[in-house]
Amino acid sequence: MIKVLIVDDEINVRDDLATLINWEEHGFKIVGFASNGMQALEIFNNTNPDLVITDILMPVMNGIELSRKIHEINKNVVIVWLTAYKKSDYAIEAVNIRVSKYWLKYALNADNLIKELSELKKRYLRCVLIKI
């Protein structure tokens, strides 16, 4: 199972993502939720997730800083940024931090989430195999 950490300051986004699909049916297990970067980092250290889905703008610590810190700890973690609207401001940072995907919150539904997760799963497994 690929371990997933969901980070968003909005409880509805966290709840929606968690209930949108049956994660375990697709080989994913949600190991934690966090409402800001600082909290996420603490959960990350305790649960060692393989995939972190995080909002960008959050209080206390934003998603960009969180992503940077996670990759300092483990650069193989797959990171996906959640955003409420299309904005190119973060594109360069996303490349620099090696963020894998950029998901538009409102466009997410069960079908495309499954499709996206499937791609991420392949990428993750490739990385693991290379490591072996």
Partner: peptide, 10 residues
């Protein structure tokens, strides 16, 4: 408005 989507699904 995005919240409306999440709330509607729930």
């Amino acid at each position: 408005l995005s919240s409306v989507i999440y709330l509607a699904r729930q």
